[in-house]
Design a protein around this nucleic acid. Sequence first.
DNA 1: AATATATATACGATGAATCGTACTTTTATT
DNA 2: AATAAAAGTACGATTCATCGTATATATATT
Lengths: 224, 224
Amino acid sequence: MSSIEVVSPTIEEYLEAIYRLEKKKGSAKTGDLAKELNVALGTITNTIESMEKQNFITHKPYKGVNLTKKGRKIALDVVRRHRLSERLLTDVLHIDWSKTHDAACKLEHAIADKDIIKPLEKVLGKPKTCPHGNPIPSESGKVIEEKSELLANLGLGKEGIIVKVTDERPDMLQYLATLGLVPGANVQIEEKAPFNGPIIVKVMGASYALGRNVASVIWVKKNE
Amino acid sequence: MSSIEVVSPTIEEYLEAIYRLEKKKGSAKTGDLAKELNVALGTITNTIESMEKQNFITHKPYKGVNLTKKGRKIALDVVRRHRLSERLLTDVLHIDWSKTHDAACKLEHAIADKDIIKPLEKVLGKPKTCPHGNPIPSESGKVIEEKSELLANLGLGKEGIIVKVTDERPDMLQYLATLGLVPGANVQIEEKAPFNGPIIVKVMGASYALGRNVASVIWVKKNE
DNA sequence: AATATATATACGATGAATCGTACTTTTATT
DNA sequence: AATAAAAGTACGATTCATCGTATATATATT
Ligand SMILES: [Mn+2]
Ligand SMILES: [Mn+2]
Ligand SMILES: [Mn+2]
Ligand SMILES: [Mn+2]
């Protein structure tokens, strides 16, 4: 029986953060983790040392840490619980998608039990993604990532469907929602200002100028 | 603004356990708490000393602890979250009532935020009780306790409606459910054996012999 | 190549929560 | 009232997660 190892909520948070950073930048640097987890640098050094001893991660000083197979397995389970929690919050409790991330980040540790997570997944209708479009790992840790590209990289005149949003700060999500920039929405590039200037996009008939920072958290699937 | 004080999950658990024991026995003894919380006696002594310093409880050695006003306020909020969690588990996730208590005891700490608990309460339809019939404290800490008496104390031939069940051990709840002894069910006393012997009750047409231990966790509202 | 800047580590210290054993006090029994 | 049993407390120790300051190393800039 290869059931998933039980670790403290703290270690789960570390694994979750490492997973995200690894996905985004290839590895998780001490400093990034300190910011992400809101703790002092020395704390990170301590904890990753202990996590390395437990074979959850490998660490190359000044290069960052990476998940081992063992660590990734747990991380994926945390991410799974996180994203199912988000779905519960939006789909069942009707909470705004801008508020779900922080709440889910606590909830995820309280629903580790299979007797809870399985019924939850079922009631939600086995959703494939979180409300922000990120894939929900399967029970066995499989992640089906829909192919997509950054809105910021889409060519002039091209259009596509928003697949996911990879910045879950409440203010960012609120802003995106007011423009209708949510997963499933159709967007077209109308203009791209030079020198990394704004991008004008058309959504639901309306046009908006987006900064590159914003256009770089939105992933779309190009229409053929 | 008298918003509720934030304490650690551990202290919340202590307050919750003290609330229950106080309700059941008038006060919470060190030993009872050790059993309830599954920690060593010395740990209880330590923690209640610290809790007394923070004015959450008063403590008379060998007599037990009691909640202060301040402590009770927090305890009621924890109990509120616990019972709303149980409702979520049974009503939304369709989890059996015998499994909800333990799961809720973790969940309750992850849904302290007003932005979560209010929508949850609303979605559940502002339930008055947990699945076991115990009242859900209001946001302001009001508890509306329906008048009821122990099934074990009901006279021969009398009948009533089950109001609540005050033992939430999984095996007890499973047993009660198989007999149909759940809140709302009508029961009648058919026989009471002497010397604290079994009680024969009629439920839904069937008759069952219940030990006094069982009849002493079931509370009923006598018909007329 | 030398220096400056960013990044990471070492180290000593703290607080919360826990344990187990030894000791003390209260309550029950004779 | 003396003694036994039960209940509670004291105390020293451990582990986890954290902090902040001082020090070290690597990378970027000149
Ligand atoms: Mn989290
Ligand atoms: Mn999400
Ligand atoms: Mn609890
Ligand atoms: Mn209950």
